[in-house]
Simulated scan of single mutants.
Amino acid sequence: MEILAFGVQTDEKPLLEKAFAGLHEVRCLDVFLTADTAPIAAGYEIVTTSVNADLSARVLRILAGGGTKLIAQRSTGFNNIDLGVAQKLGLTVARVAFYSPYSVAEFAWTLATAVNRRIVRAANRTRDFDFRLDGLMGRDLRGRTVGVLGTGRIGEAFTRIAHGFGMRLLGWDLAENPACVELGMKYVDKEQLLAESDLISLHVPLTPATWLLIDAAALKAMKDDAILVNSSRGGLIDTDALVGELRAGRFTGVGLDVYEAEDGLFFLDKSLEVVEDDTLARLVTFPNVVVTSHQAYFTHDAVGQIIDTTVQNVLDYTANRRSENVLVPAFDPADNAD
């Protein structure tokens, strides 16, 4: 059986082909799944998709009409999938329930330290042989307060690093993580966390309840010199409100690996085009902001685990086995984060 893989990155392709070798043939495409590209899948019983695939009702109907039976998404999050429609169409949808949380947690800290110590600005200066330190002063993290919104696997990994820095730990979640409590984390309400934290990092899934979790009011509740990091989902932050606060001169730094309207932009080369997203265009001009293109998960270890799980999802499907990775027909909207 030949499997069609959408949205395969250059570094990912050899790993995907090697993992399926001797099991199934895999056709790798660098184009992402959209309503325009979905007809390519006609005749393919199994397709595998990337995190930014469009799996709305319209696309699902095109896939089902072309004979697709299994959609194996190569990510943990599934907020991009209309699971209700998939169930009605009789499609099986699987995801990767778990992969290395360290990839995302470590990258979140990379963003935090980069904006704190002005690494991007410093590197750009030295390329021009400008070795001044003006405007590059950062802050020690030891003794300062970190607020972790979401203390699941990734949030816990992030907290362990914060503990290593010697920081005061505040957490917010639906349920306390005993491992974080053991590290000294104090669970508080969101308002207290925002008001007291010097560094805030988001590690919650994107659900209707968390959409714009960091809205205009939340941003105003934060310290003027706080650092904000988001390596989870762009929809957690009201980006227009964030730009407004940045224009007012607030925040020491902001590190974003995800963006509210990243579909159609991230993972693509837009360098020769006029980007019509005024909010993003304004955001990247701030000297205290670092924006990366949803790469927090992108380590050899994590991608390898994602691919191995995807292969297992395909083998389970062909053997009529069920696992925790299957979202349709049973799924829990609360468990939806990368």
Rank of each mutant, 00 (worst) to 15 (best):
E2D: 13
I3C: 10
F6I: 01
Q9T: 10
Q9V: 04
E12I: 00
E12T: 01
K13M: 02
K13L: 00
P14D: 03
P14Y: 06
L16D: 00
G22M: 12
H24Q: 06
E25Y: 14
C28M: 02
C28F: 02
L33K: 05
A35E: 08
D36R: 06
I40F: 02
I40W: 09
A42C: 11
T48W: 06
S50V: 01
D54S: 12
A57G: 15
L63V: 05
L63N: 10
A64N: 13
G65N: 08
T68K: 11
K69A: 05
A72Y: 04
R74E: 07
R74L: 12
S75Q: 02
F78S: 03
L83V: 03
Q87F: 08
L89C: 10
G90E: 06
R95I: 03
A97G: 12
Y99M: 01
P101N: 04
E106P: 07
F107N: 10
L111A: 09
N116M: 07
A122C: 11
A122P: 10
A123P: 11
A123T: 15
R125T: 03
R127D: 12
R127Y: 14
F129S: 14
F131V: 06
M137A: 15
R142A: 12
G143Y: 14
T145Y: 14
G147P: 14
G147H: 15
V148G: 07
G150H: 05
A157V: 09
T159G: 11
F165H: 10
M167W: 13
D173F: 05
N177S: 02
P178L: 00
V181K: 14
L183K: 02
G184K: 08
M185Y: 07
Y187T: 07
D189W: 12
D189S: 14
L193R: 13
A195E: 09
A195F: 11
S201N: 13
T210Y: 02
I214D: 01
D215K: 01
A216T: 00
D225V: 13
I227W: 06
R233H: 10
G235L: 03
I237Y: 14
D238C: 01
D240G: 02
R247G: 07
F251Y: 13
T252C: 13
G253K: 06
V254W: 09
D257P: 05
A261K: 03
L265P: 03
L265I: 07
L272S: 05
E276M: 04
D278Q: 03
T279M: 04
T279A: 05
L280Q: 06
L280I: 06
L280E: 00
R282D: 11
V284A: 10
F286I: 02
P287Q: 15
N288Q: 15
V290Q: 14
T292N: 12
S293Q: 13
S293I: 03
S293T: 14
H294D: 04
Q295C: 15
A296N: 13
F298K: 11
H300F: 15
D301Y: 15
V303C: 00
G304C: 08
Q305K: 08
D308L: 11
T309W: 08
T310E: 10
V311C: 11
Q312L: 10
N313I: 00
N313S: 03
V314H: 01
V314E: 01
D316G: 04
N320F: 13
R322H: 12
N325R: 05
F331C: 04
D332C: 01
P333K: 07
